[in-house]
Nucleic acid binder design. Structure first.
Length: 299
DNA sequence: GAATTAACCTGATCGC
DNA sequence: TGCGATCAGGTTAATT
């Protein structure tokens, strides 16, 4: 699940329980995720307060009163759930429109990290495939950190526009699909939303990325349309609470709804939804992963 | 140097 | 019902 809209949905779910709250205790239930936890991980968190919970690309960034930043990545299967103590009597209390907290429950399989906050909430990180990541970085070093340094522009930021994308794609021979998955080109897109944005802008995932840039690095009208499609697809997905494939949930346990709006992703063999298009969605494999597109209206 | 592939690890699903 | 093969949202190291 976790591409930009899902990470943003998680951020919005965690923020009320984290921001302004102190880490009372931090429990690691295994020594590593994708990488080992730092030795002083718990020690550096306990007693500090979360000033703000932000997002950059697919990373969650908890800014701490200690001057550190807790950097978290959900990988492919990571999720958080927010639990409140039963004694607080707030089961079912509204967290956000349409959202509800979990009542405190037993530990589940693949619960790897538990944050107990002074707000009374327990934040439980669950990640079956363990491709997730948690690190602590001094705030002053964040921008130069290897994981952050190369990350491209935020697609929903006004500074991300066709001119900016043209710079990144000029001369690129890689297929558009691969170029848009490259986090240094634009941050936060994954397999699903690349497929969706390419379908919406009627661009073939197989087209060479550099063909959308005219001589002199000038963006073509089709590149302008692609940028608009990326922004539209991401904004719609955030508004819907992200996509829920398989068992993925928001922090309150409810399912995201965006998968009901997929235009191309996971629709192999179904009719293309582009008005007036008689095509059928096809699945191909590019750089080892599934691409869904309509060969009739995506050129 | 750019582009592609393999690997990380587990769980769900599908066909037999 | 059980078993093996296949595939899955991301990142990155290794290879072409």
């Amino acid at each position: 699940m976790p591409e930009l809209p899902e990470v943003e949905t998680v951020r919005r779910g965690l923020a009320p329980a984290m921001e302004g709250a102190r880490f009372v205790s931090v429990e690691l239930r295994r020594p590593d995720l994708r990488r080992p936890f730092p030795n002083d991980f718990c020690q550096r968190l306990e007693g500090t307060t979360v000033a703000a919970l932000k997002r950059r690309a697919k990373y969650l960034l908890a800014e701490l009163s200690s001057g550190d930043v807790l950097l978290m990545h959900l990988g492919m299967s990571g999720s958080f759930r927010v639990e409140l103590p039963a004694t607080a009597g707030r089961e079912g209390a509204s967290l956000s429109p349409g959202g509800y907290y979990h009542a405190r429950s037993e530990t589940k399989a693949h619960d790897h990290v538990v944050f107990s906050m002074s707000s009374g909430a327990r934040l439980v990180f669950n990640d079956p495939r363990r491709f997730g990541l948690m690190l602590i970085v001094p705030a002053a070093d964040l921008h130069d950190h290897p994981l952050m340094r190369e990350v491209g522009p935020e697609p929903l930021d006004p500074s991300f526009d066709a001119a900016r994308l043209a710079l990144a794609l000029a001369g690129k021979a890689a297929p558009l699909k691969a170029a848009l998955l490259d986090q240094t080109v634009v941050a936060g897109l994954g397999n699903i939303y690349v497929c969706e944005a390419l379908h919406l802008s009627h661009l073939s995932p197989r087209r060479k990325a550099g063909t959308l840039v005219a001589r002199g690095g000038v963006p073509t009208p089709r590149l302008v349309a692609l940028v608009e499609a990326v922004k539209a697809v991401l904004a719609d997905a955030i508004e819907a609470g992200g996509s829920s494939l398989r068992d993925h949930r928001q922090t309150d346990g409810t399912l995201g709804l965006f998968q009901h709006r997929f235009r191309a992703y996971d629709r192999e063999g179904e009719p293309c939804v582009t008005p007036g298009c008689a095509g059928t969605v096809r699945r191909i494999v590019q750089s080892g992963r599934s691409t869904f597109f309509c060969p009739v209206c995506q050129k």
